[in-house]
């Protein structure tokens, strides 16, 4: 069964909304999540495939992109006993 992230061809997500002059990150915490993920993968606490898998099984379409990332990072760190 496809996971929740596999949306290609589905209907019901509404129009595409483009934000003009969008900044790279909308808040400092998003930049922290982005950087934290790279650093933790770099240290080998988990790998990129594990991260992708964690995003796919914990994400919600109600959450923002970096909220989903943060939930995945927390989940992996808990599952691996780091926090």
């Amino acid at each position: 069964m496809p996971r929740i992230n596999d949306v290609g061809g589905q209907d019901g997500f509404g129009p595409v909304v483009e934000e003009l002059d969008e900044p790279t990150f909308h808040a400092d915490w998003e930049a922290h999540v982005f950087a934290m993920n790279r650093a933790l993968i770099g240290r080998g606490l988990y790998n990129l495939d594990e991260f992708r898998d964690a995003v796919e099984r914990t994400m919600s379409h109600e959450s923002s992109y970096y909220e989903n990332w943060f939930r995945a990072i927390q989940t992996l760190l808990e599952e691996k006993g780091h926090v």
Partner: peptide, 12 residues
């Protein structure tokens, strides 16, 4: 950009 990551763009 956010729209590239949005389900709306990716699905449609």
């Amino acid at each position: 950009p956010t729209w590239y990551k949005s389900p709306a763009y990716r699905s449609k």
